Amino acid sequence: MKLYIKYMVSLRCKLMVKQELERLGLHYTSIDLGAIEIVETITEKQKIQLKRNLSLSGLELLDDKKNILIDKIKNVIIEMVHYTDEVPKVNYSEYISEKLDYDYTYLSNLFSEVKGITIQHFIIKHKIERAKELILYDQLNLSEISYKLHYSSVAHLSTQFKKVTGHSPTYYKKLGKTRRGNLENL
């Protein structure tokens, strides 16, 4: 039986879900971002308990089909931006459509209707968050970050970065060093 969990976006979330399943005596065959496959059919009592326990950790067991699909879209994007270094061989719309086996227009309209932003804007926000992380890690230069996040150029990354954050990547890097320095002086 497959269950879907909202806000499950990290390895730490996977560990929390694993612990909850074990507490309830449920056996799983896989735990992925946003989805778990359990061996047994979950009872209503177990479902209520799982829902309650997950909510204490900031996670949510999904029941509604639209929300499940929205969460799948978000997880594909999060995995693509944050956890995969490989460049998709097709554009993002085709990649998402292929991964979820749905028409992209349907996915896009549903996502916009439910979330109030476009899939493209959601991707951009995540790419900029990832860029911010990489800038603060200070292991890659802007050209390398631009390439890693599949931007056509540093200028394209810088333009989107400034549009989303209000700052240039260079200014953000200086700001991060200043903050880190201030914390070290405490």
Rank of each mutant, 00 (worst) to 15 (best):
S93L: 02
F111N: 00
N91H: 09
K163Y: 14
G34T: 02
K174M: 12
K18D: 14
Q160D: 15
L15P: 02
S30R: 09
K65V: 11
M80H: 14
N185H: 15
Q19K: 00
T170F: 07
L3R: 02
C13K: 03
H167R: 07
E98A: 06
S108C: 10
I123S: 03
K45V: 14
I123F: 04
Q120M: 09
V81E: 03
V39R: 14
L157P: 04
Q49Y: 02
I70W: 08
H126T: 13
E60W: 13
L142C: 09
H156W: 07
H126C: 03
T170Q: 07
I48L: 08
E98N: 09
E133Q: 09
L21D: 15
L140D: 06
N185K: 14
N182D: 07
K173A: 07
K74R: 09
I42C: 05
Y147I: 10
D101A: 00
L100D: 15
S97R: 01
M8I: 04
N67G: 06
Y172T: 04
E37L: 07
Y92G: 10
E60F: 09
L100R: 03
L136K: 09
T105N: 05
I48S: 12
K72D: 13
Y7G: 08
L59N: 01
Q120A: 10
L136F: 09
F111H: 03
I96K: 03
L142K: 02
H82T: 07
N67T: 10
E79Y: 15
K174F: 07
D103F: 13
L62R: 10
A131M: 07
L107T: 13
I145W: 01
G181F: 15
L62D: 02
I135D: 15
P88L: 00
I128T: 04
M1L: 04
S152K: 06
H156M: 12
K115L: 05
